[in-house]
Design a protein around this nucleic acid. Structure first.
Lengths: 201, 201
DNA sequence: TCAGAACTGGGTTGTCAAACCCAAATTCCT
DNA sequence: AGGAATTTGGGTTTGACAACCCAGTTCTGA
């Protein structure tokens, strides 16, 4: 998601794999229990590495958290792009986000969005990374919308990029409501209502 | 926001005032630095009370946090209702939320919404309180929309309550994006785009 | 008036987790 | 072959902070 210069020595394939294992384990734990609710020891155990490995790959907890942010942003944007390139992207997109919400019952909320509240006010680096992730995400949606716009399938007086931001915002808010309600209902309502407004059915 | 039975002994007016002072100080600090980033000692100093007062009014930190949730929910819903009762509520509402976002540059995000990510996965009581707050909030918006709907000023095929959830979701998501971007721009875009879609200008 | 609430301001204790250290074995890449 | 990277698994130190205690004073409402 961001240039990985300034790296520790250099990273053999194996090392990269271990590092990735740690990041993935951390991502899962953080999604389930929050940043503050996840200890390095838990991550260590989940990733099945031994003590010093953590500090071999990450200077401190913040650095690990930032790697997690990167990882989540990358994963999400890749998925979203995949869904949005298809023929009628909006339908595919809707299906994707709704089934995702239903599957987890919105537990943990959006893997990226739920980090905002936890990091924005106490880790500037992480905040910037999340912001960059959202930028790319919005751009991905914007790309999808532009082709629809060219086909005249969107309200002509609304800029696709503005609509992309709106879609993303609603998606995030819907996730938030669903997370706090422990139910996918508000999520479905918000997403479907917005899409109805946009496409006119 | 929720029945305050199960209270410590009983509370004289003065006591209630002190308690409120603590809650308000805690609310401000938590909004600025997050729950984990706020210590009881900081709250104590900000509220200008002495050590034992904290434990006189709150059994532990969680209880204080929950009081803060209550306080924020109550404050917000009251404000929102006020804006929404006016003649053309939507305009007043829009103005209110946008100026609020601009004033603070979205720092801290929504006082209620930003708590979700921090508490939903580690404090079930707080999660429930936030959910209740959002319910009331959605209801308030729904009330405002119903009168518009009766006047035929909304798309007739969309239920006002669904629209209320959507509006609230977008508002939350917009706050999230603005918070992480340290800019009110995404907020304005999302809110205005949605309102345009709803009212057709 | 007086019991109970509010309040002071100084303690202590215990826990938890991040940060950090180390000596040694293995494995990888060149 | 040999230097660097990877890995192990056990440390220890340090600091922060919630939780809790207490002995005494002042306020206040029934």
């Amino acid at each position: 998601m961001v240039n990985e210069t300034s790296e520790r020595p250099r990273l053999t394939p194996k090392g990269a794999l271990t590092r990735a294992r740690i990041v993935e384990a951390a991502a899962a734990l953080i999604h389930d229990h929050g940043v503050a609710g996840t200890t390095l020891e838990e991550v260590r155990a989940a990733a099945d590495v031994s003590g010093s490995q953590m500090y071999h790959y990450f200077a401190d907890k913040n650095e690990l958290v930032q790697a997690v942010v990167d990882y989540q942003a990358e994963t999400i944007v890749k998925n979203q792009r995949q869904a949005l390139v298809s023929a009628n992207g909006m339908k595919a997109w809707r299906k994707m986000v709704i089934t995702a919400a239903k599957r987890t019952k919105a537990k943990g909320g959006c893997p990226l969005g739920s980090l905002v509240g936890q990091l924005a006010e106490c880790d500037p680096e992480a905040r910037a990374l999340i912001a960059a992730g959202f930028d790319q995400w919005a751009a991905a949606i914007g790309d999808g919308l532009r082709s629809l716009h060219a086909d005249g399938k969107l309200p002509p007086d609304i800029a696709p990029d503005d609509l992309a931001v709106t879609l993303l915002a609603t998606l995030q808010g819907a996730n938030l409501l669903a997370q706090v309600n422990r139910s996918a209902r508000p999520f479905e309502i918000a997403v479907d209502t917005l899409l109805t407004l946009v496409t006119g059915e």
